[in-house]
Design a protein around this nucleic acid. Structure first.
Lengths: 137, 137
DNA sequence: CTTGACCTTCCAGTTAGTGGAAGCACTATC
DNA sequence: GATAGTGCTTCCACTAACTGGAAGGTCAAG
């Protein structure tokens, strides 16, 4: 298989596949003309990577997961731990975004959005920093 | 005021302040010794930037908001539009993360997490992109 | 033989900074 | 005046994970 074929089959862009080779996630051999030659194993790795990345795992996580994936003596606890840490990061991010959402939607609601200059959004942005003082209490 | 002073007052790191000058968000004059000299207006701009960034606005958004902030003839509608677009991006991100959370917590729950190799998480990651539909945003 | 699709490498750009080195400037102390 | 310590300056490199594009080699078809 050439790079275009595995790309189509795995859903991972050719450019990304080359990048993954660069950083050592895959190591396809080359044919006489210099083209990368991919086998079934490479296709599986790339599919695995595509799925893991789509779940938000970092490249470093992917590297570790891939190693466990190909280690038949692995302990599922190791996989679970990586996933749990990742889930915690996701939750933290969601919380952060949710806080932004709250503040922002509140401000948007308070803003007339007409052609006058008065704007609670700008007023909030201009407030001094310090201990997050979003509610007057 | 020197950079250390505005940094302490605005909460924006000195390094970041220099970066903001680099990309044209502020333009403090220099004193004879080459030090940047900050006035009240600069302090306000930096405070504004710090708050806007903490709400997740991009640097480009900040540039636009800052311009509106200092334009007394602005229409609050323009501010509101920027905020609404940003809110939409936040919502999209939250949805994406929530989808990840769902899948991941389901898989984690199904994984024994012991010293045996059987692992639903790895099994899912190894699935072709067909069955479990993922959408790219 | 030429066209076009596919492959190659390498360079640059993306976001929003952060870390660190080398070197002046200022203040205080001895 | 010499020295120490802190703060300021610039510049370069690095982060995450690609993506775009240029310049050029390869291959199958017509």
């Amino acid at each position: 298989m050439n790079i275009g074929d595995v790309s189509a089959l795995s859903g991972v862009p050719a450019k990304t596949i080359r990048y993954y080779e660069d950083i050592g996630l895959i190591a396809p051999p080359r044919s006489a003309n210099g083209y990368r030659v991919f086998g079934e194993a490479d296709l599986h790795r790339l599919t695995f990577l595509g799925r893991a990345r789509s779940l938000g795992f970092s490249i470093d996580d992917c590297r570790a997961l891939l190693q466990l994936y190909e280690d038949n003596t692995r302990a599922s606890a190791d996989v679970k731990q990586i996933a749990q840490k990742h889930l915690a990061r996701i939750d933290a991010k969601v919380e952060e975004l949710t806080a932004m959402h709250r503040t922002l939607s509140h401000l948007i609601h308070a803003c007339a959005g007409d052609n006058r200059p008065d704007c609670p959004i700008l007023e909030d942005l201009a407030t001094s920093p310090g201990p997050t003082r979003r509610s007057k209490a």
